[in-house]
């Protein structure tokens, strides 16, 4: 974990955006001995279509609770991408559900990682675990948190009957991410739009 990392997770209602953010926060605060503060959008905008949450991870107590310019942005809808991508910190990381988000243009210096999370979730038989696939993928490409801590946080955040499925989802996302990072490294690249399958 780094001194201060700010993350925003966004998508539409029903995708499990808040849970994904909570898993990340829990991993840091409970299973990795750090600090995490999660806040989320409430009100009419949260009751409607869109959903977003912010998590701050730190090795020290977190004082300012909100995120203005995240280091990492995880998006699961086009709307979330359009709305939040411009706020990304220079040099930040964009993580996108690549079949739901079309990346048009990004300022240079942003590393972009795409994952077909919905498809991977469907391969497990349940589309609803796409958020946990995203968490796994996030874990692999950012390397911010100990994968074990994330995995424990997943197990701790879902009902017992759903645990196995969610852990499979996490692993699937993580493996996809690890492979992608490995491939990019061989090409001598970090994350880049060209790595996105939809771009081809």
């Amino acid at each position: 974990m780094q001194l201060l990392t700010e993350i925003r997770v966004a998508g539409f209602g029903g995708q499990g955006v808040i849970l994904a953010a909570a898993v990340i926060g829990k991993a840091a605060a409970i299973y990795q001995g750090g600090y995490a503060t999660m806040t989320q959008a409430f009100g009419p905008e949260a009751r409607g279509g869109s959903s977003s949450a912010q998590v701050i991870l730190s090795t020290e107590p977190i004082l300012y609770p909100y995120v203005a310019h995240p280091d990492v942005l995880v998006v699961m809808s086009q709307e979330a991408y359009t709305r939040f991508a411009p706020q990304l910190k220079p040099g930040g990381i964009l993580i996108a559900e690549q079949e739901l988000v079309h990346i048009d243009k990004m300022p240079s210096g942003i590393r972009v990682y795409g994952v077909p999370a919905t498809r991977l979730a469907e391969e497990l038989g349940r589309k609803v675990v796409l958020n946990i696939v995203m968490v796994g993928f996030f874990g692999a490409v950012t390397n911010l948190l100990d994968p074990d801590a994330l995995r424990k946080a997943v197990a701790d955040s879902v009902p017992p009957a759903m645990q196995k499925l969610n852990l499979q989802a996490f692993d699937k996302g993580f493996e996809y991410g690890a492979t992608l990072v490995h491939t990019l490294a061989e090409k001598g690249e970090e994350g880049h739009p060209v790595s996105m399958e939809t771009e081809s």
Binding site: A22, G25, A29, I30, Y35, A36, T37, M38, T39, Q40, F42, I62, P65
Partner: peptide, 10 residues
């Protein structure tokens, strides 16, 4: 306050 009420931490 709303911020503390809706803020999630350990």
């Amino acid at each position: 306050d709303e911020c503390v009420g809706h803020m999630t931490e350990k």
